[in-house]
């Protein structure tokens, strides 16, 4: 039962991603050509509301359902890590039109070829684990 709330939140996420066409390769292509406001509106409004939400949560020291105060850990500062890693991610995101969330939602939608994309993403994650000590961070 502990996990049911996560399952239902996941279902909500999958429905949003499907119905707002965020899982559409075409929408990502359109976004990178700056030919639609749709994706920018989604990310922008999510972030603007998110900034307000997190500010309030920090000030009010909101607790989670386990009774612990929700803390936000600052990420370690680096430029190469985020810029190079981010650029590699972006190359793949534009090519397959799917980031890690949509890959799974699309499989559920019935597009089984995304299993290959997930397989590739697992291989990429594994490869990072193998060579990470040799990369600039």
């Amino acid at each position: 039962m502990k996990y049911l709330k996560f399952l239902l939140t996941g279902v909500l996420f999958g429905i949003i991603m499907s119905k707002a066409e965020i899982i559409s390769w075409y929408r990502i292509y359109e976004m990178f050509r700056f030919e639609s406001f749709h994706m920018y509106g989604i990310i922008g409004s999510a972030v603007i509301l998110g900034v307000m939400l997190i500010q309030i949560m920090k000030r009010k020291e909101v607790s989670n359902t386990k009774g612990e105060i929700i803390r936000f850990k600052p990420k370690d500062m680096s430029i190469p890590r985020y810029l190079i890693g981010g650029t590699i991610f972006g190359l793949g995101w534009a090519l397959v039109g799917a980031c890690p969330g949509p890959m799974f939602v699309l499989v559920g939608y019935g597009y089984l070829s995304l299993i290959l994309v997930i397989f590739g993403a697992l291989a990429g994650t594994f490869f990072y684990g193998l060579i990470k000590d040799r990369l600039p961070h």
Binding site: R81, G85, F89, G92, P100, S113, G120, G124, F127, K132
Partner: peptide, 19 residues
């Protein structure tokens, strides 16, 4: 499909997160 997925998986972990 596999190559694009690879870039997404590798890049996400290198950058420490995705979208």
């Amino acid at each position: 499909l596999i190559g694009g997925g690879f870039l997404v998986g590798f890049g996400a972990r290198y950058a420490g997160g995705c979208t």
